[in-house]
């Protein structure tokens, strides 16, 4: 019985050392870059949808809260999407084979990047509040702040493409 327990214990330790860490700690650089791009595209999708609603082009205002909430939730993850080895020049050394538009300035100016990302978080939180209180007059201004925050971050931290 003692021998069986010892074997189980040893097996558990071996599994912990050799199997679990790779599952939770290893990052595939290409996967990270693509994940980030997909998340940012989904954020843009929600922001683009809100834009059409705010401009009065689509009569589906009951969906505004859903998009605003999603934009807020996604924006809260932005700073987690740019680990150092997934942005230039580290990404290349880490073996990245897919292109990234993230700029080295993210790593070079971490505090500024954090501040720019936080502005998007704050702007989307404000937007959710405005939507949920039904304050239609404040809506264009609140959404404008979201757009400005996206542009502000792209200006300094994303390779230009527009």
């Amino acid at each position: 019985m003692i021998r069986l327990r010892a074997r189980l214990l040893v097996s558990a330790i071996v599994l912990t050392i050799f199997a679990v860490p790779p599952l939770i700690a290893e990052m595939n650089v290409d996967g990270m870059i693509k994940y980030r791009q997909n998340v940012m595209k989904s954020l843009a999708g929600h922001v683009g949808a809100i834009d059409r609603l705010v401009r009065g082009q689509v009569p589906l205002m009951d969906q505004l809260d859903m998009h605003a909430t999603a934009a807020r939730d996604i924006s809260q993850t932005i700073t987690t999407l740019f680990p150092a080895n997934s942005i230039p020049p580290e990404a290349e050394f880490a073996g990245a084979t897919v292109a990234t538009e993230a700029l080295a300035s993210i790593a070079e100016k971490p505090e500024e990047f954090k501040k720019a990302a936080q502005e998007t978080v704050d702007a989307t939180e404000e937007l959710v509040k405005v939507v949920q209180t039904g304050n239609k007059q404040q809506l264009p201004l609140a959404f404008k702040r979201v757009g400005e925050s996206c542009k502000g971050c792209h200006k300094d931290f994303r390779e230009k493409k527009e």
Binding site: K151, K155, K160, E162
Partner: peptide, 24 residues
């Protein structure tokens, strides 16, 4: 025209780099 005014593209993405400055 909306892009030139705001930097917002049809897919919800926003201008960055020098174009964002030209707009702002």
């Amino acid at each position: 025209a909306y892009f030139l005014q705001t930097g917002a593209m049809p897919d919800g993405d926003y201008a960055g780099g020098e174009m964002a400055e030209v707009i702002d």
